[in-house]
Design a protein around this nucleic acid. Sequence first.
DNA 1: GTTAGGG
DNA 2: CCCTAAC
Length: 576
Amino acid sequence: MVSHKVLEFGDNGYKFPAQARAPRSVRKRRVYKKKISGDDTMCAIDLLATVAGSLLLENESSVIAGEDKCVVVQNTVKMEVLAVENPVKSVPVSEDNPCEGSPSPCGFSSVITNPNHLLVGDKVENEVEGFTNLGGSDSCEVRNFSKGLSAGGNGDVKPDVVVSIGSNSSTEVGACGNDGPNGSRDDVNLFSRDDDDENFSGYIRPRMTRPVPRIGDRRIRKILASRHWKGGSRNSADAKPWYCSKRSYYLHHHQRSYPIKKRKYFDNISDSNSDDYRMQAKTRKGNRIISSMKSRNASFVSRDHHVRLRIKSFRVPELFIEIPETATVGSLKRTVMEAVTTILGDGLRVGLMVQGKKVRDDSKTLLQSGISEENTHLDSLGFSLEPSLETTTQPLLSSYLSEHACDDLTLCRDNVLDSNNDSAPSPEDSFGKLCTTDDSRALVPIASTAVLACQAPNRKFKRIEQQQAAHRRIRRPFSVTEVEALVQAVEKLGTGRWRDIKVRAFEDADHRTYVDLKDKWKTLVHTARISPQQRRGEPVPQELLDRVLKAHAYWSQHLMHQLQTEPPLSLGEALI
DNA sequence: GTTAGGG
DNA sequence: CCCTAAC
């Protein structure tokens, strides 16, 4: 049996296996034509060749599995990066912090004890490993995992959320630590409410790991796509390709694609009161990119009718990263960066709540909104991170900064915020500036009680609607290693056999579908053709790109060869 | 279910 | 990466 080693590298490049098959489409075409022409003999030979080819390939695969270096995505290591370290020192845990004294049910490490909730019906062996308590005593995370959408019998499907509870929490956390119906401690329902049948709120972890049940996922996406997105851009005069810009993409795929009716509905519910706020939170929970952010140690100060706010940081509670153990440290760093930017970069805006009311009008002054130097009764000032481009949905989790009267305003003479009288800084402004404020000028937090309030939904939504925001998979750029594997596989198998390529070189990379591979090859060919200056992203070694072009040329020619050796059309065919 | 190609 | 027509 001829092994894959027929792939030889010589001075003039490589030779391709002589038995390489034509792309499926070509093969099919040929068969069809043969049938039409009635050439049974040729058809049989063709069939025989195909079968022989298949056998050959099967054998090859078994050989390759052991020795071929192109099998790169194996022994996947998954790790949880719990948090981007918060530069701010933890504030003391108050007595009413339900997390205190019960580290097991509420502590960081306890919340992901049962990955089955995440991956029902999927492999879970490696799902959660190396999960350690990094959060310290000021963190309490609770997670409800989705049990999937496809199974109709799953009556207790829960959203895929993580809720972070800040220090000095004073929210309703009574149920913290109770055992879920399945005895899994992660099923803690932190904000259990009687009127909350959804037990929801919080953070959707970015799906950087093996996706939750793929079939259901894709099916649902397909359904949704056909139901809501059809024709979304076809007739839009200003529609641009999705890749033109992130914003246009989101406008294109998210905002516009909501039916008018639904859009109005969401707009309505997001206008008025705090109850609405809760529901907004719920509508967003299918999203995989938005995270709950915890703001802590915020100060509220004022001077000369200036209101000064300081949020030292928002916290990224959790990232989930999957990376081959053979990956380099550099690629790990890049992966983490990617995860962070995915969470933060996909369009966030800051929401503001004052005394339980959401302030939506950006043109309002702080004074008009009830934020003023004189207002010493500000019992709650809340900031939240929300999707900035998707106005139909709202934040998953709001971080309240319960601000009580600042009785030591004189401490706050520093110019933390350079606001001026005639422009009331919008929450967005505040956010940006606050984030870049030098910690060395930190103000003394004044009665700042960071409370992460999990807003329970007050209405029912259909599960499928929750998933609408989660339709798109996370972007996962190909690593050089993956490109290498892809190139090698294509060199051997040719273009047009993406399924085989997938099985051969990306078997264990569940997040790479054969369509992904096909698409990547497409972009690789494009990348190889453009000048290096025009290329973006992690640079692909020129050697690989050369191989891409060479392989592409070869297989194009090969394809042409296949087509050209087609027997001439029979008279019958020509007439048809 | 796969492949090819446009978006 | 998504979507869909054509196989």
